[in-house]
Design a protein around this nucleic acid. Structure first.
Length: 576
RNA sequence: CGGGACGUGGCUCAGCCUGGUAGAGCGCCUGGUUUGGGACCAGGAUGUCGCAGGUUCAAAUCCUGUCGUCCCGACCA
């Protein structure tokens, strides 16, 4: 390919819209252009890199025994109603109406479609297991599109769905995908790691997310360097002991705390109640029902855990206007000792189990209770792990201190069980002629997000540092004189056909630009290898061999082609 | 949706506070000089200052509304 023939609109300045490096480079290197928030046009270089990622995924999915299909992007809403996700996906689901005012959904993911297919086509254990995958556009009505391709309204996803006859079979399918994912990200040149994850609205009971460590990531990951425990904060636990029991005061005692509405204020004079001796009482509205949540004063509620434990579809903190008629006091004086209306669930965090000598709100503005015992004085409906883990707490597996870091989620594997197969009738007949729902798994990779993660992880002050496996072109030939018939141009053209014939992907910068411009552009776009051909070095029978991010090397003209070929193949081999 | 910031040529921004009818750099076009790290000189094109109201003799500038973008939070590949 000739540079002048393709389209690589590079930008010298950082676009005002882009905050994080990968987003800036996506724009500056001419890989994509924004149509509007969350919607991007892929330009030739971006498309090539994206296709490379997609093809690596295809190869590994195929290797793992999955089979590629392509499902409709426009889906009937009735299957969404049948699965129950028409409700749970809610606003994230794009809906469109046709001329008859009938409603359709734009595919955000395809469990419903594939399960419908399975229901119709997979009827015998002899046909299982099967794992279907596709690579294609997905739509989500994101509340806030962000960071370029990282969180877009429309994005490319690889989604796969496995159907097994047994739970063990499903676990094996899961494991295969887990291993395939590990290979996929390694081949994309990414340092990735898997973490235990919350399953969210997709459902299921076993799940890992694949993470790329990056400060700009949207996830907090808790991990242990000693034993490899790693989990999304939404899921992470720690081995902190429950609150120590103390000698219990005689009875619950009410005391005045005028103006005290925070845990912090109660720790100060004249009260001096340590935060870890307070019970924090939160009121949430979960699926329209008020729920009290009790945590230790120094703990934070983990909303993901709250959602998971309660099975709520939607939850939010209650407003003061909702709380006052419910408990008789304003936030800051709430508690669960008295005045808890019948039927209102009281959820307590495990860390409060057995706690006594605690202080909590009296459900009366300006008053608190002391000498409170969880067991004796509070009617707890359910005990759950609801707190958010912080760095330094003991690892749940080996008790060494946990760490927390930010990361980008690029893939997610779920064991779904029979949630969808039951609702959408994806059953099969087993060896004994018994009908049973298929045991499913689903597996996603954000292809566009992975592409951006590659850039986020591989860049320097000059531009992108592509791994050869993902680079839009592997080699950039840079003749410094482009006059037809000139020695540099002739050699560049000869090398172009020679390298291309050897299966390499080569771009020839035939633009009549000054050397500085061509060098800067090739580094910005990030081609892994540049071969510089100038008249001076050519006079000595040499050309320049310059790996991106590496040192420049003078190479004899007759040696350059084999050297380039060997280099590219060598780099590629490292990523297998 | 809540909180914050910002909308001025293709891009990055100044001008706004203190109203007087729009500027710079980059990019683009023409000619010339250059030619190993984002060249130089000369000339040129490109703006209903996001949009709609209002105040005023006069609005990019002040006021109101609205739309859009970006950042923080809820959502997720």
């Amino acid at each position: 390919m000739r540079w002048s023939q393709t389209f690589i609109p590079t930008l010298k300045e950082v676009p005002a819209d882009a905050e994080i490096v990968s987003h800036q480079l996506l724009l500056r290197a001419g890989l994509v252009r924004k149509l509007t928030g969350g919607l991007y046009t892929f330009l030739p270089m971006g498309l090539r890199a994206l296709t490379k990622v997609a093809n690596i995924i295809r190869e590994e999915m195929d290797r793992a025994g999955a089979i590629e299909v392509s499902m409709p992007l426009l889906q009937p809403v009735d299957i969404w109603q049948a699965s129950g996700r028409y409700e749970t996906m809610r606003d994230a689901l794009y809906k469109v109406k046709d001329r008859a005012q009938k409603e359709w959904a734009l595919c955000p993911t395809a469990e419903e479609v594939i399960t419908t297919l399975a229901a119709n086509e997979l009827s015998s254990y002899k046909q299982l297991p099967k794992n279907f995958y596709q690579v294609g556009t997905k739509f989500r009505d994101e509340i806030r599109p962000r960071f370029g391709l990282m969180r877009a309204k429309e994005f490319v996803m690889k989604d796969a769905y496995s159907f097994d006859t047994t739970d063990e079979g499903a676990m094996a399918s899961y494991r295969k995908m887990y291993d395939a994912y590990t290979r996929i990200f390694a081949r994309c040149g990414l340092r990735s790691f898997a973490v235990e994850a919350d399953t969210g609205v997709i459902g299921g009971n076993h799940s890992h997310e694949f993470m790329i460590p990056a400060e700009t990531g949207e996830n907090d990951v808790v991990y242990c360097e000693a034993c490899n425990y790693a989990a999304n904060v939404e899921k992470a636990t720690s081995a902190l002991p429950p609150t120590a029991a103390r000698e219990l005061g005689a009875v619950v005692e009410k005391f005045a705390t005028p103006g005290v509405v925070t845990i912090e204020a109660l720790t100060k004079d004249p009260y001096k109640v340590a935060a870890n001796r307070q019970i924090k009482t939160l009121v949430y509205i979960a699926d329209s029902q008020p729920v009290l949540v009790l945590l230790r004063g120094d703990d934070q509620l983990n909303e993901a855990k709250f959602m998971a434990r309660t099975g709520a579809v939607a939850a939010r903190p209650a407003t003061a206007e909702e709380i006052v008629p419910l408990l008789g006091a304003r936030p800051g004086s709430l508690g669960a000792v008295v005045n808890v209306p019948k039927g209102v669930r009281v959820l307590a965090d495990e860390r409060l189990r057995g706690a006594n000598d605690m202080t909590t709100g009296a459900n009366e503005d300006g008053f608190h209770f002391r000498n409170v015992s969880m067991e004796r004085d509070i009617q707890v409906t359910d005990w759950f792990d609801l707190r958010t883990v912080s760095a330094g707490e003991p690892c749940p597996k080996c008790a060494k201190p946990l760490k927390i870091r930010r990361a980008i989620e690029v893939g997610h594997v779920f064991k779904l069980g029979t949630k969808y197969s039951e609702k959408l009738n994806a059953t099969f007949l087993d060896e004994k002629g018994q009908r049973a729902p298929a045991v499913m798994g689903c597996y996603g990779i954000g292809v566009t997000r992975t592409l951006q993660a590659v850039i986020e992880q591989g860049n320097d002050k000059d531009g992108i540092l592509w791994p050869v496996s993902v680079a839009p072109y592997q080699v950039c030939l840079t003749p410094l004189v482009v006059t037809p018939g000139s020695a540099p141009m002739e050699l560049a053209e000869k090398l172009h056909s020679e390298l291309t014939a050897a299966g390499l992907e080569v771009i020839l910068d035939d633009r009549d630009e000054r050397p500085g411009v061509k060098f800067k552009d090739s580094e910005l776009v990030g081609f892994p290898l540049r071969v510089g051909i100038g008249e001076k070095s050519l006079a000595k029978g040499e050309v320049e061999f310059k790996p991106r991010g590496g040192a420049l090397e003078a190479v004899k003209v007759e040696d350059i082609a084999p050297k380039v070929i060997a280099w590219v193949r060598g780099e590629l081999a490292k990523l297998r």
